[in-house]
Amino acid sequence: MTEHSRIRASFEVPHELSDRRLDQAVSELMPEHSRSRLQGWIRDGQLILNGRQCKPRDKVMLGDRIELDAEPEVQVTWKAQSIELEVVYEDDHLLVINKPAGLVVHPAAGHADGTLVNALLNYAPEVENLPRAGIVHRLDKDTSGIMVVARSLIAHTSLVDQLQERTMGREYEAVVVGELTGGATVDAPIGRHPGDRKKMAVVASGKPAVTHYRLVERFAAHTHVRCKLESGRTHQIRVHMAQVRHPLVGDPLYGGRLRLPKGTTEELREVLAGFQRQALHARQLTLEHPETGEMLTWETPLPEDFEHLLAALRQHVRELKSHEF
């Protein structure tokens, strides 16, 4: 860690923060840092009050001097790799990308490198000093689409808050098995599957999860839907749509065996059998810019394999109608 990368700040406690806890006061004075990060610096003696080390719960008074001289921990130990990224938007605080299907977001067992994090460390090296390299939400390996990465501490804190407060808007496109007659909301808690650790499931002990879906286009035995998340649980859309008996096309975990509609042509059979990932694309992202407060929205087009799937389903409908006459 170089000397210039240290975090330094000095404040006098203003009237409105007098008689507050130290950790509460500094979180008001330095909102770009999370409360837990500030508490850690207080305990380590890197953030001091009137020249002495204190506890997070100690009270501050008008005119007290707060000083910070901290060395941010290097949050990641993964290596930078030159992996192509499709950047939709970037500034000093945010990096918005269109993630392709097949790209793992975070290194884990079985995927030590070749991930989005490795690409980020190469494209934006400053993220090495951020928790989880700036990743605040994930897309599954085989889900394509838009996601945001923090490039600064103030952005990381803001994005995490927006996710927790459910003010970040996220919409997805999906193709599900079966003909839906209308949109609906699935409000069902999600937790680890009791019998399969690789899967999630609707379980009473799970965390609250809400998915809204509406129809975009109906086919002979499938439906194109648009899903909006209130929460962001692991595999949420995949689990919720399977729960209402309309799993995503191609989903290897929750889709079950391949189901072919009546009158399926050989062309459609090949497309459905060849679609080897869940038909899910993160289409739109809306958030408040962490510095300016401006509400921003980005959209990404459907990837080629998703468009090819929709085209095959439309063609099947046309063929069925032509046989009616």
Rank of each mutant, 00 (worst) to 15 (best):
R192Q: 13
A101K: 14
H316Y: 10
M30K: 10
V210Q: 10
L159I: 04
E71M: 15
L302A: 15
E173V: 10
E307N: 12
R233S: 06
A204I: 03
R21D: 10
H246F: 06
A184F: 04
L103N: 02
R314F: 01
R257H: 10
L280M: 01
E266V: 02
P303Y: 09
L285V: 00
H137W: 01
E165N: 11
Q24F: 08
D113E: 12
A108W: 02
N122M: 06
L103K: 00
T297Y: 03
H156F: 04
R138F: 00
L280R: 00
Q315Y: 03
I135R: 00
T286V: 08
T234M: 15
L258Y: 07
F325Q: 13
V216Y: 07
I97G: 05
Y213I: 08
S34N: 05
G169A: 05
I7C: 12
Y213E: 08
E28H: 13
A101P: 10
R233T: 03
D113K: 07
S144G: 00
T77C: 01
M30D: 05
R43W: 09
P303R: 09
R65V: 13
V177D: 11
K207G: 14
A311Y: 09
E217G: 07
G178T: 04
G51N: 12
R8H: 08
G134Q: 02
G110E: 11
E12K: 12
G293F: 12
I237E: 02
I154C: 14
D161H: 08
G263L: 03
P107T: 04
K321L: 03
F306E: 06
H323C: 10
F275L: 09
E324F: 00
V244L: 13
V96Y: 01
L49H: 04
V203L: 11
E304W: 06
Q53D: 11
G51W: 10
L85H: 02
T265E: 02
E3F: 08
V149E: 00
T181V: 14
P189S: 11
E128R: 11
H289W: 07
D44K: 15
L68R: 01
P72I: 12
V271G: 09
